[in-house]
């Protein structure tokens, strides 16, 4: 009976902490609405929003839309990063792992140089090539005659990434330098400045489906992080479940980066922070990783659009913070199951 009570208490405590994190992130989102370069640099409470159309436009169509996109993109990257790490039983894996990021980048660059650089075509092309990269990695892994299943996936992912990066380099060589090359470079650095409500609506359904599915399978993620024999022996259809979860995580990631560009480190770092705070059990640390992802991207974007008169691409901010946090996490002792 004591064990039951202790378990219930632990779950309640973790859920409470999670709710607090969600509330903090939302409060911060509201606060960041008043950060920016208008009407003055830094924090400003625009009290004239009811009379001034410009203020309303800045708040709703520039800032709010970016904040919402940061929350959605951050949660998706945190979610798929967590799923990838569990599925490959490797805490150093992130969604770019199976060539997905390089495939998406190639798809986006291709559309930009073909002159069909409308937002929608870039979005479709980068999602498509992200999925192609995943599929090619997967098929290659089944053909390789070396090592176990996971090792083969890793190796084929490396090969596919390399192929797409060299193709991308070739595109950059022929890209028109004054416009296309700049567009490609900015896309590679990631940014939310292009955000629009229309874009958000266009990714909302695939992102939600992917997130809901992965969250619903969070206990299974624990089991899939074990050796295949072990997860199989406790009733998991390992091949099928792993494939479905991989596709869900990849689709979610590619549709997000198709409009945000490449945003590094979020998928790698947030699962680590979540596990540090909530322990390894995905029941709580997966949702926590999503909340932390949202928080991380929100803070990075707010800094990126407030600090300097010109915008700092969000990918640069996340990479800098991500690397520092990574170093700190790996240098401190594990605090397993503390919350």
């Amino acid at each position: 009976m004591n064990a039951q009570l202790a378990y219930q208490r632990k779950i309640r405590r973790r859920r409470g902490a999670l709710a607090l994190m969600i509330a903090t992130t939302l409060a911060l989102a509201l606060l960041s609405l008043f950060f920016g370069r208008y009407p003055k640099a830094g924090f400003a409470l625009p009290l004239d929003w009811s009379t001034n159309a410009m203020t309303r436009r800045v708040l709703v169509n520039v800032r709010l839309v970016r904040i919402v996109l940061a929350l959605i993109a951050g949660s998706m990257l945190g979610c798929s990063g967590f799923a990838f790490q569990m599925l490959f039983s490797n805490p150093l894996v992130e969604p770019g792992f199976l060539g997905v990021s390089q495939g998406s980048a190639f798809g986006a660059a291709l559309m930009i140089v073909l002159g069909a650089g409308s937002t929608l075509s870039v979005q479709i092309s980068s999602t498509f090539f992200g999925l192609v990269a995943l599929a090619v990695s997967y098929v290659l892994a089944t053909r390789f005659r070396f090592g176990g299943w996971l090792l083969r996936l890793v190796l084929s992912g490396i090969a596919v990434s390399a192929i797409f990066s060299s193709a991308l380099a070739a595109i950059k060589l022929v890209a028109e330098p004054t416009k296309d090359l700049q567009d490609i470079t900015f896309w590679m650095m990631g940014g939310l400045w292009n955000a629009s409500w229309k874009q958000i609506l266009s990714i909302l359904v695939p992102v939600l489906v992917s997130q809901v599915y992965i969250i619903s399978q969070r206990w299974k993620l624990n089991l899939l992080s074990l050796a295949e024999k072990s997860s199989f022996s406790v009733g998991v259809s390992t091949r099928r479940d792993r494939t479905l979860l991989l596709v869900a995580a990849t689709v979610g990631t590619t549709v997000v980066i198709s409009i945000t560009g490449l945003i590094g480190w979020v998928g790698l770092i947030t699962p680590h922070l979540a596990r540090k705070l909530f322990g390894s059990d995905a029941s709580v640390s997966l949702p926590a990783s999503m909340v932390i992802g949202s928080f991380f991207l929100l803070v990075s974007d707010t800094i990126g659009r407030t600090l300097l008169p010109t915008e700092i691409p969000i990918g640069l901010v996340t990479s800098l913070f991500g690397a520092v946090i990574f170093i700190i996490i790996l240098s401190t002792k594990s605090q397993e199951g503390k919350v």
Partner: peptide, 26 residues
């Protein structure tokens, strides 16, 4: 590869009794 607790790990044995979207109960 992940630092599950001993209880987490023992709980994995309960998986065949859980629904496909369920986590273990008390």
């Amino acid at each position: 590869n992940f630092s599950f607790t001993l209880l987490d790990y023992a709980l994995f044995g309960r998986s065949p009794y859980l629904g496909s979207m369920q986590s273990p109960s008390a």
